[in-house]
Simulated assay, not measured.
Amino acid sequence: MSVKESREQRSAIMRAVKGRDTAPEIAVRTILRRFAPGYRLHRKDVPGTPDIAYIGRKRAIFVHGCFWHGHECPRGARSPKANADYWRAKIARNVARDAAHREKLAAQGWRALTVWECELKDSPAVEKKLREFLE
Rank of each mutant, 00 (worst) to 15 (best):
Q9D: 04
R10M: 15
R10W: 03
R10C: 02
S11C: 11
A12R: 14
A12G: 11
I13T: 11
R15K: 14
R15V: 04
V17K: 15
V17F: 00
V17E: 00
K18I: 03
R20T: 13
A23S: 14
E25G: 01
E25M: 13
I26A: 14
A27Y: 04
A27D: 05
V28D: 06
R29G: 03
T30E: 12
L32A: 04
L32K: 00
R33P: 08
R34A: 15
R34L: 13
F35T: 05
A36Q: 09
A36D: 06
P37V: 02
G38T: 09
R40T: 08
H42T: 02
R43V: 07
K44R: 14
V46C: 07
G48A: 10
G48K: 06
T49F: 10
T49W: 03
P50F: 08
D51W: 06
I52Y: 10
A53Q: 04
A53Y: 10
A53P: 06
I55C: 07
I55T: 15
R57M: 15
K58S: 06
R59I: 05
R59Q: 00
A60M: 07
A60H: 06
A60R: 04
I61S: 12
I61D: 12
F62D: 00
F62M: 10
V63N: 04
H64V: 05
H64M: 04
G65I: 02
W68M: 06
H69L: 11
G70N: 02
H71S: 12
H71E: 00
E72P: 01
C73K: 12
C73V: 09
P74T: 00
P74H: 07
R75Q: 13
G76Q: 07
G76D: 02
A77M: 15
A77E: 14
R78L: 13
K81I: 10
K81P: 01
A82N: 07
A82M: 02
N83L: 11
N83S: 12
N83P: 00
D85S: 14
Y86H: 14
W87Q: 05
W87E: 12
A89I: 01
K90I: 07
I91Y: 11
A96L: 12
R97E: 09
D98E: 10
D98F: 02
D98S: 09
D98T: 04
A99W: 01
A99F: 09
A99H: 12
